[in-house]
Amino acid sequence: MEERIIIAGFGGQGVMAIGQLLTYAGMIEDKNVSWLPSYGPEMRGGTANCSVVVSTEAVGSPVVVSPTSAIVMNKPSLDKFEPAVVEGGRLFINSSLVDRKSNRDDIEVYYVPANEIANELGNMRVANMVMLGAYIEASKTVSLESILEGFTKVFGEDKAHLLPLNREALEKGAEVVRNQLATTV
């Protein structure tokens, strides 16, 4: 098993953070992992992305060129990474902010209204966790429990009180995927 994931959005959407969570969860499950941020001279509010590899083998290139999955939080990220996803791969689109459908018919595409769901949960900042929940439900790369175990490692013990909210966000994202799969089958 080797999952090569691109997570992209604009600065502030928490794309780096869910990348780190996923990486930590992989490590907790004794998988080989790497996390690499794009750190170019980006503008404030510009695009940000990170490459995550979770593998049962040693991680080769930490740079993800052809992702097996891409999580895109805004439209510029969809435009940039949609063509790169490998055939048979997965694409997770934040449909709250992206108004177009994917042009690919050779990959699994999931539309997740992450901002709307986060809004319903009362905290816009968990939109990234909704996307991550959708991703792990569809890919089964790591378990939801491992993500939660890594949560305080990434965000610090003083954020432990936010665990229930984040669990709910992950579960809502997972639900979107289950519903979408149920309607397509």
């Binding site: 780190q20 490590m27 790497s34 996390w35 690499l36 941020p37 750190y39 930490p62 740079v63």
Partner: peptide
């Protein structure tokens, strides 16, 4: 290089 400085691994 910048990559190994910026990347996270166990």
């Amino acid at each position: 290089d910048g990559m190994i400085g910026q990347m996270m691994e166990p």
